[in-house]
Design a binder for these strands. Structure first.
Length: 391
DNA sequence: GTGAACGTTAAG
DNA sequence: CTTAACGTTCAC
């Protein structure tokens, strides 16, 4: 496996490309090349297709031999994946969303461990994105992983195959008649687009950009921090770097001038299991959010700003003991998957604590102090940026 | 001061 | 009832 990962987890030059591709895309990316609005031609000089073939075969082999570990070793991944398939995602951003998948362990050999963590992909809005016509023009002959539609049979296997964690997604997605956005863009160029986080790197890329936490793991999921580790801004480094895509794999944000964080964060707008409210706060702009009382930006903003709890539950400090909730907008909150390796994850049964990397920044503070009564926005999230997530 | 364990709350 | 996770306590 390590050999495999070493081969797969190669830091590509995509970040720079993606940086450019993140430019406003507006529409019909297929026509412009998913690489980013006319980037197709630009890819040639950057990507060595012979090399890509090499990786492709390697990856194919990888999937043959490893996909089945997705479910068995990543129970939560299947769970999350299933949930993701059924869960709403920001419509606007989802539609624009290219692909993203990650794991906290990335290329590390700990892939063989029994991590409860997850691998998942964002998916496009069932109605909007799935039906969007612009995705279905001239697909690349090779698999179009981004489309889990019947018309793209290869997608399933490429995303993890009929077995494994991805299968859950595949099944779910098919069941729901939606397509996963995995590398929607990249799929147009490369068959290995399926960005199965299991082999997508974290560690290797982390050397380039990932934030190494004190446990020595690459903080691939630190969305808010992504920008900081990214030489090319937005998702190029923090996100893609974290993904550590094999060369030739193009993960792109399908346009959006909002770019980077808004897209990426949206893609990860899935959190722990069944916390609908919390999730909805994060999804705030997402229409399908069940029982969401904050369908609009205002609601979302208030949830985020108000800390979604204290102030609303009681007018005064009478109920000071009320449990605080995650802000839903800070980096950790926006993180979707448990790292599976931190103490909280490992001791989930006894610890009753959320993954350390997902612990809300706001909740880390003392309830009384610093934050100004919970009415403040998490420091990790600039107000303006928090807003952008909803567009 | 930090982290683990436990009690408790909240939501599905 | 089950699961997730916040708050508190306690050991180090």
């Amino acid at each position: 496996m390590s050999g495999m990962t070493s081969g797969v987890c190669v830091e590509s030059d995509l970040s720079s490309m993606l940086q450019r591709s993140s430019a406003p895309s507006h529409h019909h990316p297929a026509h412009h090349g998913y690489g980013g609005q006319g980037q197709v031609s630009g890819l040639a000089p950057v990507l060595d297709y012979s090399e890509m073939d090499r990786y492709r075969s390697s990856i194919a082999n990888f999937y043959k031999t490893n996909v089945n570990m997705n479910v068995s070793n990543f129970p939560q991944s299947a769970k999350l994946a299933a949930r993701l398939a059924a869960a709403p995602i920001f419509p606007p951003t989802a539609a624009r969303l290219g692909a993203m998948a990650t794991t906290p362990w990335g290329c590390h050999d700990n892939m063989n461990m029994s991590h409860p963590a997850a691998v998942f992909w964002g998916r496009p809005k069932p109605v909007g994105a799935a039906t969007a016509p612009h995705h279905h023009h001239h697909h690349h002959p090779t698999a179009t992983a981004g489309h889990m539609t019947p018309s793209h049979p290869h997608s399933a296997s490429l995303q993890g195959g009929p077995v494994g964690g991805a299968s859950a997604e595949g099944v779910a997605s098919e069941k729901h008649g939606v397509s996963l956005p995995i590398a929607q863009g990249s799929s147009h160029h490369h068959s290995m687009a399926p960005t199965n986080g299991n082999f997508l790197s974290g560690y290797s890329s982390g050397t380039d950009c990932g934030v190494i936490n004190k446990q020595g793991h690459t903080d691939m999921m630190g969305l808010s921090e992504a920008g900081s580790c990214n030489s090319s801004g937005m998702m190029g480094g923090g996100f893609l770097g974290g993904l550590g895509l094999p060369p030739g794999v193009i993960v792109m944000a399908m346009g959006s001038a909002g770019g980077g964080i808004s897209d990426t964060s949206s893609a990860f707008q899935m959190t722990s299991g069944q916390r609908a409210l919390t999730d909805c706060q994060q999804h705030a702009g997402s229409s399908p959010c069940p029982s969401s009382s904050s369908p609009s930006l205002a609601g979302a903003a208030s949830a985020a700003v108000g800390g979604a709890s204290l102030s609303s539950s009681s007018s005064s400090g009478a109920v000071a003991k009320r449990k605080r909730k995650r802000c839903g907008v800070c980096g950790p909150c926006r993180r979707l998957i448990n790292c599976g390796v931190c103490s909280s994850c490992r001791n989930r049964k006894t610890g009753h604590q959320i993954c350390k990397f997902r612990k809300c920044e706001e909740l880390k503070k003392k309830p009384g102090g610093g934050g100004g009564g919970g009415g403040e926005r998490p420091p990790s999230v600039p107000p303006a940026e928090a807003f952008r997530w909803f567009f």
